[in-house]
Design a protein around this nucleic acid. Sequence first.
RNA 1: GGCGGCGUAGCCAAGUGGCUAAGGCAGUGGUCUGCAAAACCAUUAUUCAGCGGUUCGAAUCCGCUCGCCGCCUCCA
Length: 469
Amino acid sequence: MTKKKEVFKPRKAKEVTFYSCGPTAYEPANLSQCRRFVVSDIITRYLEAKGYAVRSYMNFTDLDDNTIQGAEKAGKPLKDFTAEFIDGFKHDMKMLGVKEATGYPKASENVENMIEIAHKLLHKGYAYEKHGSIYFDISKFKNYGKLSGIDLSKIQLGKTVDLDNYEKDNPRDFTLLKRSTLSELKKGIFFQTDWGNVRPSWHVECSAMATNLLGETMDIHTASRNLLFPHHENEIAIAESLTGKTLANYWLHSELLMVDGKMMSTENSNVITLQDVIDRGYTARELRFLLLSIHYRKPINFTFKRLESIRTALRRIDDFTCKLLCLPPGRPHPEVAAYVTDMEEKFFEAMDDDLNVSKGLSSLMTFLRHMHPVLQVNNLDGEQKEYVLSSLSKLNHVLQVMRLKGCPLGAEANRLIQLREKARIEKDWKSADEARDELGRRGITVIDTENGPVWKRIGEERCGEQDKD
RNA sequence: GGCGGCGUAGCCAAGUGGCUAAGGCAGUGGUCUGCAAAACCAUUAUUCAGCGGUUCGAAUCCGCUCGCCGCCUCCA
């Protein structure tokens, strides 16, 4: 609200209530949305890492112009049409390692509540009816524009809306309930009210679902920057004129994801979906790493070149964790504890400062640089290995990009590696190369080092299959 | 026109008044190696879009200029 960094204070000591504006169920998840939800995931996970229980809700907008038109085009009933995208979306989020919310309200299932809100606003004098539609009277809500810092008198009216289509008293007013169109009536997409058949507007949908599930005031409300005005401003106007209480104590808006310097959108015809990225041979885990490695309040200019360099960086981290997991216990190293403490302190300190993930990651990379030589000479005993792993798990609870589960090497692969080593000592290059080829067929690359072979799996498992925490 | 944001190395990206301007990718040099590949180690900005000002001291604060991006009430 203050547009400044503030110290976070939840309403209850150990619980945080959290609402995230969800997607509209008419298209597959694109990267801009992926970013938003990875950002809210980082917030949720970080709060959990700090010991809070998070009650989080994310809505699905399954009743609006886009879904109705989409269903019509697809020749499907609205419900079937949106269900497909809702399932797809949940699947995509799982791939990205986004933790499941406490609940996923749907706009279509909360219409009663929205109509009730319109009733109440009308009674309180905050809204008016005109030709079967209900509009919110902005002049009645004196705090309007506080969140976005907008000055209503200086706004360019009709910039994005054709005002001729509406019968508002003041063009600044916004719609709460919209009179049903003829084609909607034909399809049965309407709700009977005292004012006739209507359907709710986007703004009232979010407002209704958020307050319905989380009460009059919630701790955190997130979404991306482009929703700030008018949507969140309107959401606040609706909720706060009803309750007189603050809708959300903290608003976090993530910046946009761009392609070629332009916002990803249908109009710019530069939409890239998660599936597109996967089709290009990248994984959801790699994408997650790209999306979270930049501060959430900065725009990301997405390129595949960038994803490629993220892939290399992630591979280095994988090499390290793989080596660590497969390493037999050796002798203890005196500095390890200090390296671990340093990394953890710096990581969480960076995260405490408005979720500075980039800065936090640098502490991880520095730690890896310190640890590589230690691993190289196997200077780590069993206890230290566990210590390092548990510390990395703490970071990974938030990041969800590292692989920290058991050595990926099977018994058969181990036998082949031993076989090859023996052959190499005997200078039997033919057998050695055969063993290497066989390992290659099993998806394992052998890397010779001065301290014996190290191996790694080629290919990727999915991020969603990572630590269940 | 109003409001908001951004501009730091070849690329990406931290840092918002004072230690040598984090970290990643790419590059370069080296170690290892039967071959190969990978990995590891080292190294890479006298300077932060430009100009001017404040200050003992500025990437960081102020003013102006240039460039880019977002929002402006039914696309979500």
